[in-house]
């Protein structure tokens, strides 16, 4: 029988997801327990008691669902509906979880103007709110660093300045996931829980992530964030318009990252950081449209990317006037 690469990939995915950390037991012991003691073990085996039998049933279906990429259109819709219902049951949160797919002829790209950014960090703040980032650990996807002239290494930039900005003779540089065309993080993932979408966005299926953090180690651009603890976002501050691959609630032990605000970009909107920027230093758009702003920047400005020699082909350019 011929087994294509795709088949292999599928069989790997279908083996089921390895143990989730949010439930202390590995999946195997979890299942054994379930067989031995019946439903009761399920109820007590995984932390808190579900509040109702509906919640239990939903949780059950959620636990055994497939990797998002293997789901049919219908299955995607079903899991989104279950998650919406669970959010309501568990926290009285009325969220809408989109499963909107990439459309053809779109490849997202980003450019950052280092001669225009003033270091206000409105972007950092907007991202936290839009993407429901953990308030307790102060998780951030987007960062701004104050840089000395002649310095090009964001690793040594200062992000904790406590003075009015901009400062003469300094410049400001943002960093976030660069959504590489050839992303090393994706190759590193043992469970295929992270991949690049057709429109170029690198995403994570949080429910399939086992928290091994190989992707984090593989990323040369510090683009990934790990939830060491249960992330905390107060219900009243939660952004309710969500995407399955975007800003829906994550759990302890799961990896997350910038998704070019997939819940926004796929609706035709700019990312939250781009919209929040009062200086216009952030340019987001379609690389396949020769008339887009991003294409104008690539054509007319002096652009560069970080660590180009690695060949990861980031879709994030820095430019200056």
């Amino acid at each position: 029988m011929c087994s294509s690469k795709k088949d292999k990939e599928q069989s790997l995915l279908l083996q089921g997801r390895p143990g989730k950390k949010s439930c202390r037991n590995s999946r195997r012991t979890f299942l054994k327990g379930a067989l031995a003691a019946g439903g009761a073990a399920l109820l007590t085996g995984c932390g808190a008691m579900p509040g109702s039998s509906e919640e239990f049933a939903l949780g059950w279906s959620e636990y055994f669902k497939k990797n998002y990429r293997l789901m049919t259109e219908e299955e995607k819709q079903e899991t989104a509906t279950r998650l919406e219902r669970l959010a309501d049951l568990k926290r009285k949160e009325n969220v809408q979880i989109s499963t909107k797919e990439a459309v053809g002829n779109v490849l997202y790209g980003y450019a950052f103007n280092i001669s225009r950014c003033e270091g206000y960090m409105d972007c950092v703040d907007a991202c936290i709110k839009e993407n429901n980032l953990d308030r307790k650990e102060a998780t951030q996807y987007v960062r701004i660093f104050e840089m000395e002239h002649g310095q090009m290494n964001v690793e040594s930039g200062n992000g904790k300045y406590f003075h009015e900005v901009p400062v003469e003779d300094k410049f400001y540089m943002g960093a976030q996931c660069f959504h590489c065309e050839d992303p090393p993080c994706v190759k590193a993932c043992p469970t295929k829980a992270t991949w690049k979408e057709e429109d170029g966005i690198v995403v994570v299926d949080y429910d399939w992530c086992i928290g091994c953090r190989y992707c984090l180690a593989a990323c040369p651009y510090w683009g990934r964030r790990f939830n060491w603890n249960e992330p905390e976002v107060p219900s009243e501050e939660l952004t309710k318009k969500q995407h399955y691959l975007g800003n829906r609630r994550r759990n302890k032990g799961e990896m997350e990252k910038c998704t070019f605000c997939i819940q926004r970009s796929r609706e035709g909107k700019l990312t939250a950081c781009t919209e929040a920027c009062p200086t216009g230093s952030r340019v987001f758009g379609n690389l396949l449209d020769p008339n887009s702003e991003i294409r104008y920047v690539l054509k007319k400005k002096k652009v560069f990317r970080l660590k180009e020699e690695l060949g990861t082909d980031p879709k994030f350019w820095y430019f200056m006037d």
Binding site: E118, G119, Y120, M121, D122, V124, D125, I128, A138, Q140, R143, I144, F145, V154, E155, G159, K160, Y161, F162, H163, E164, V165, P166, A175, W222, T279
Partner: peptide
């Protein structure tokens, strides 16, 4: 553009 206080701070990259 006027100078002003940043809205927040940024954590170190790693």
């Amino acid at each position: 553009f006027e100078t002003r206080w940043p809205k927040t701070y940024s954590k170190t990259l790693n």
